[in-house]
């Protein structure tokens, strides 16, 4: 069966020894860098009803303002040395969460605490297409907060990491999207930020660049930094990250070891792509339940024994559409 073999491949890939050996492993105890508590981001948007009613009144009522939750209650803690992948489908709130963590967007409620100013890999916003790559390296380095002296010192390293060669002296508007992505990634690492956040930036680079950028990020992690990587490609997360957070509809489904979470997400996404929606939903519920159990363990620990009798919501009533035996699907090779 197609689904079976895909699952088997996924499992085989993630357990192959060389990949396992290369993957960054976070230290057990290290200082906290990012703490998020019950983050919520809501947007108010205008919704237009497509079905046309007759009469003036219904026509007037066609547009209404509705509130959309992009991030709906996300809590987690991150430590230095962790390489955290945020995974999920389009529109699951990954990028909004990242922007909120970076402090660029204020949450509707909830709090983010950080040990340093996070740097979101978005340096392209400061770059000017008319300038050459080299001029943009200088400009970008100043934009992310380096002094002119530091920018000069970092210049050679940035040019080397970007691997643009002679193209560094051409105007940036002549660059391909991959070249531009390499340059902006290289500039962002120049600041050697304590907390780096990357939003789908690595997908445009070629294989050689992926390897080099991974090395650069490993160095950053060794210097006790924290890296967040948002991607909908489970493979990237599995290969590079130590921990993964699976998001769906603005909530954390599962938070744990990158390989485990990414594999579950991949199996879910695969079933969804195959059109097997009910199976995908079952997998999602299983993962959500596993995530709930993790959180509840922690909460009970936090609150002490007086609330031990409290039953997690999912245990009171089995979720609809959930049947036994699903669980084995997610782990069977």
């Amino acid at each position: 069966m197609a689904t079976r073999s895909a699952e088997a491949t996924a499992a085989a890939e993630s357990t192959s020894p060389d990949e396992q050996g290369e993957r960054w492993v976070a230290p057990e105890h290290s200082p906290l860098t990012v703490v998020a508590r019950d983050l919520k981001v809501r947007y108010t948007v205008k919704r237009t009803n497509r079905t046309r009613g007759s009469g003036a009144l219904s026509r007037l009522r066609r547009t209404q303002k509705i509130s959309v939750g992009a991030v709906r209650g996300v809590s987690f803690t991150a430590r230095s040395g962790e390489f955290i992948g945020i995974i999920g489908r389009n529109g699951s709130g990954k990028s909004t969460l990242l922007r909120t963590l970076a402090g660029l967007e204020a949450p509707s409620s909830g709090t983010v605490l950080t040990s340093a100013n996070p740097s979101l890999l978005g340096v392209n916003a400061a770059l000017l297409p008319e300038l050459t790559g080299a001029q943009n390296v200088k400009l970008g380095a100043l934009a992310i907060g380096l002094t002119p002296e530091q920018a000069d010192a970092a210049f050679d390293g940035v040019v080397e990491l970007s691997a643009l060669g002679d193209a560094i002296d051409l105007p940036m508007r002549t660059y391909s999207s991959g070249m531009a992505a390499r340059l902006k990634f290289a500039i962002s690492l120049a600041a050697s930020p304590e907390i780096l956040m990357i939003d789908e930036a690595l997908s445009t680079g070629d294989a050689a660049f992926m390897e080099r950028s991974k090395r650069a990020m490993d160095e950053l992690l060794e210097r006790a930094g924290t890296v967040f990587l948002v991607s909908h490609a489970a493979q990237t997360i599995e290969n590079m990250c130590s921990r993964a957070i699976w998001m769906e509809r603005g909530q954390v489904i599962l938070d744990g070891d990158a390989v485990e979470v990414a594999r579950k997400y991949r199996w879910f996404a695969h079933n969804l792509a195959q059109g097997d929606t009910s199976k995908a939903n079952g997998l999602l519920l299983d993962a959500r339940r596993e995530g709930w159990e993790q959180t509840e363990d922690r909460r009970q620990f936090e609150r002490g024994s007086n609330e031990l009798h409290w039953t997690p919501r999912h245990a009171r009533k089995p979720p609809r559409g959930h049947r036994g035996g699903r669980r084995s699907d997610t782990t069977a090779p």
Binding site: T100, L104, P107, T111, V112, L113
Partner: peptide, 30 residues
């Protein structure tokens, strides 16, 4: 509602109750 400043000490306390050092953390986006 904005990120409330008065919940920050609560979070710090709960983190310290779990045995984590949170003294170097500060709110962001304020």
């Amino acid at each position: 509602m904005r990120a409330d400043a008065d919940t920050v000490p609560q979070i710090l306390r709960s983190l310290e109750a779990e045995g984590m050092d949170a003294s170097h953390l500060g709110p962001i986006g304020v």
